[in-house]
Amino acid sequence: MLVIKDLKVSIEGKDILKGINLEVNKGEVHAIMGPNGSGKSTLAQVLAGREEYEVTGGEVLFEGKDLLELSTEDRACEGLFLAFQYPIEIPGVSNTNLLKNSLNSIRKYRGEEELDAMEFLTLIKKKMAMVEMPQDLLSRSVNEGFSGGEKKKNEIFQMAVIDPKLAILDETDSGLDIDALRTVAKGVNKIKSEENAIVLVTHYQRLLNYIVPDFVHVLYQGKIIKSGDKTLAHELEERGYDWVIEEYNAKKS
């Protein structure tokens, strides 16, 4: 579904990603871990199409299409979804409005009929129950005045409604207490299927107790320096990142 080949990215002349290789197939859950400043969020943002970053090399294929050639909105319409680390507050735009526009833009792109008000409402209600989204958040402005937990829940709710092929969850666990973390994880697990794929970008292992990854990758200084299965995450939690970095440096020299 997603193939990243030797992806190099810089911002303001500074190299952040220095040759990323990654393949994600449908039905898979990948976790990308790593210490602060390793380039995890950059990877998430670049895949979603953030313009401030400059791609200096490599390629990204999404369902066989050149992802880097597509605009942010076309990527979304092709089925890519980014759950933001810091969801943006948009005063004056209601959650309902955002979702309706979003769904219909995507449907239009795919040559499908737009949903009428009734169909939209039915869908929304179903998805709200699915991710345990409180009703009152729906009519409020997007993320405005939401608590940290509510913002993250709202991202997962949007993901449930949009139903993407590939979802990238950027530090969705950060700032969540254990109850909110469980709700969010439960929602993600319900959305997860054999037809879609999920990339979890996270600093800590704790989210991975609830959403079990098939693959774990360690990102360090803009490169994936180690990959493994879910046991790698446990090892990182116990021993920290230093030993992986040492191992990598030893191999390099």
Binding site: A48, S71, E73, I90, V93, L98, N101, S105, I106
Partner: peptide
């Protein structure tokens, strides 16, 4: 906010119009 809306499938113009109306 513009990027956020576009990442949800809004075209540039729609995103602009939505934010301006807001």
């Amino acid at each position: 906010a513009l990027f956020y809306l576009k990442s949800r499938g809004f075209s540039h113009k729609e995103a602009l119009a939505t934010l301006i109306y807001a």
